[in-house]
Design a protein around this nucleic acid. Structure first.
Length: 553
RNA sequence: GGCCAGUUGGUGAAGUGGCUUAACACACCGCCCUUUCACGGCGGCAUUCAUGGAUUCGAAUUCCAUACUGGUCACCA
């Protein structure tokens, strides 16, 4: 029985040839040096921080070279799929402003000429290539059961031999085609394996974009190509898809580095040109329980999913900025020199990429976020806070919406100066800093603590005299503060803190203590932005009203 | 265990044989500014680049060995 006959027996309905597919998916007509890259996740519903970093770069190089970035879904393992898992990924990319040129753009939507871009829809293509390998004697059906495979593995471990399906351990490798046909007709379950032409004693040289030259032993494992469910294993799908979709650059995590020999071999025997590879260091974290460094995990770490940042209201730009500081070591310095520039203006380079996995630093991300928000205009803060709260805090959303101009003025406090305030680390943080500015949230029950001056009669006296004698809404800031000083003086408090510190026995306290009474009476908080500006923002009536709440208590 | 990669302060890191008594940023700690907070300013925070050896007039930078960390060895990706 010939290999051709065997191939026909296994895949009787495959009529297309390898050449047909080559013609269907021709080399892309792009300018010299254009990069074609892709993001190829399983449809698990969410994007991991490490993947986002990879994706950022996968999007960036085509941007820099007039290339193409596409999204492919790798759903050859049913266990990894979740309902609407594709949409979740598409949404995450959309939230992070990562434009998809081609491929999957929705749960049931695809665009582009190199599709389908969902692997489960490409079954025939993989079968065609598998068939062609069988015909050439480079692949064969394997009837070993999982139990048998376990057995040989245990044996190999026991004898300290290299683990895997190779050489004499590859029991089905040298079956006759007649035997194979008989067992197939006998309905025995089987998978398709590569008949590896490699020799473990040989070395292959591989050039990685971030790691440089790496030398591996040649692959001699008869790896699985097609599983018993008829779908391909990652290695086979990767090689066929990235060739047919004409991918030029494959970026992926370091965990793939050890499968490179398999991939190189597959590209070779199929006669495909090897794409350029970049294996990125993993994003790590210190495990709280064990204290050991480990991969940031989707299951254990909430901060691993990029949707976490969307929900937290951390600006996507900040997340990207942070990721780029990990991605390219010279990025941060560049950003410091060009604080208002966009990531698009930065030129990415692989050799500025660190090969070692870096510990994820949420503190740093938050700092970047804080700085980013501080540079936004009051209108931008307002609009983005509105957008955020619309999705995650309806109550606050309605308030912001109701008091639009007021809110913008509020966001403008100490914002238009050269070194603006940096209160908010995220859009979810805003309410924590501003709630007392809204009567709807302000607590009229006065159960909060005053600071140094806490005798209620003294407080009432300060507020009463202030309203009656000193408070004038029209005052400019300097006059306003002069009056607070005069008020302090009248009641026996030092006009200057320094004076008080020099002769503490001469005074009841100092102007700061008096200001604090005004501050707390007005806001119920001891920490607020500039008090004068808050009073300006509130308007005379509300200032007096809030003071009266205490005076009349 | 085999194979592969990585190893510069608490963190991200610069550094490609002399300009390094190791840049910058985050965190931390002081001091200053200041009516609170935040901001800002100034200063501190690795005499040492995992360890040992070799090459060299000279090494964080080159070479070798060891150690440690991570990845991988599935009909998962």
């Amino acid at each position: 029985m010939t290999n051709k006959e065997l191939a026909d027996l296994i895949y009787p309905n495959i009529n297309k040839t390898v050449e047909d597919y080559e013609k269907m998916y021709p080399k892309r007509n792009l300018k010299e040096g254009a990069v074609v890259s892709r993001f190829a996740p399983s449809p698990t519903g969410f994007v991991h921080m490490g993947s986002l970093l990879t994706t950022l770069i996968e999007r960036k190089i085509p941007d820099e070279t007039d290339g193409v970035f596409y999204l492919r879904i790798e759903d050859t393992d049913q266990k990894r799929s979740v309902e609407n898992g594709i949409q979740g990924i598409v949404n995450d990319l959309k939230n992070f402003d990562i434009k998809i040129d081609e491929g999957v753009i929705g749960e049931h939507e695809q665009i582009g000429n190199y599709g389908p871009y969902i692997q489960s829809e490409r079954k025939e293509i993989y079968e065609c290539f598998a068939k062609s390998l069988i015909e050439k004697g480079l692949a064969y059906p394997c009837f070993c059961t999982p139990e048998e495979l376990d057995e040989t593995r245990n044996l190999q471990e026991l004898n300290k031999e290299r683990i895997g399906y190779y050489g004499s351990f590859a029991k089905c490798r040298d079956l006759s085609n007649e035997e194979r046909a008989r067992r197939i007709k006998n309905k025995e379950p089987y998978i398709i394996r590569l008949k590896s032409p490699g020799n473990y004693e040989n070395k292959i040289v591989f050039n990685d974009l971030v790691r440089g030259k790496i030398i591996f032993p040649e692959n001699d494992l008869d790896v699985v190509l097609i599983k018993s469910d008829g779908l391909p294993i990652y290695h086979f799908a990767h090689v066929i898809d990235d060739h047919l979709m004409r991918t030029t650059h494959v970026l992926r995590g370091e965990e793939w580095l050890s499968s490179v020999p398999v991939h190189v071999q597959l590209f070779n025997i199929l006669g495909f040109e090897l794409p350029k590879y970049a294996h990125l260091g993993l994003v790590m974290k210190i495990d709280e329980e064990t204290g050991a460094k480990r991969k940031l995990s989707k299951r254990k770490d909430k901060e691993a999913a990029v949707s976490y940042y969307h929900e937290k209201g951390i600006p996507v730009e900040a997340v990207k900025l942070y990721l780029m500081t990990i991605g390219n070591s010279n990025f941060e310095e560049w950003l410091n020199q060009n604080p208002t520039a966009s990531i698009n203006d930065f030129k990415f380079s692989f050799n500025k990429m660190s090969a070692s996995g870096s510990l994820f630093d949420l503190e740093k991300l938050i700092n970047i976020s804080r700085n980013y928000i501080s540079r936004l205009s009051a209108e931008e803060v307002y609009n983005r806070a509105l957008k955020y709260t619309e999705e995650f805090d309806k109550e606050f959303y309605n308030i912001l919406k109701k008091y639009k101009d007021y809110s913008i003025s509020m966001f403008n406090i100490e914002r238009t100066i050269k070194k603006p305030r940096k209160d908010y680390t995220s859009f979810s943080d805003i309410k924590n800093y501003t709630w007392y500015m809204f009567d709807e949230f302000f607590n009229k029950e006065i159960n909060y603590q005053f600071q140094t001056i806490n005798d209620i009669e003294e407080i009432k006296k300060i507020l009463t005299i202030y309203i009656d004698k000193y408070y004038n809404y029209e005052d400019d800031e300097q006059t306003w503060f002069e009056k607070v000083k005069e008020l302090s003086n009248e009641l026996g408090y030092a006009k200057e803190v320094k004076e008080y510190k020099e002769n503490p026995d001469n005074y009841k306290g100092h102007v700061g203590d008096v200001s604090m009474v005004l501050r707390v009476a007005l806001t119920s908080c001891s920490m607020t932005p500039n008090l004068y500006q808050i009073m300006k923002l509130f308007g005379k009536e509300r200032v007096v009203d809030r003071f009266n709440l205490i005076i009349n208590k």
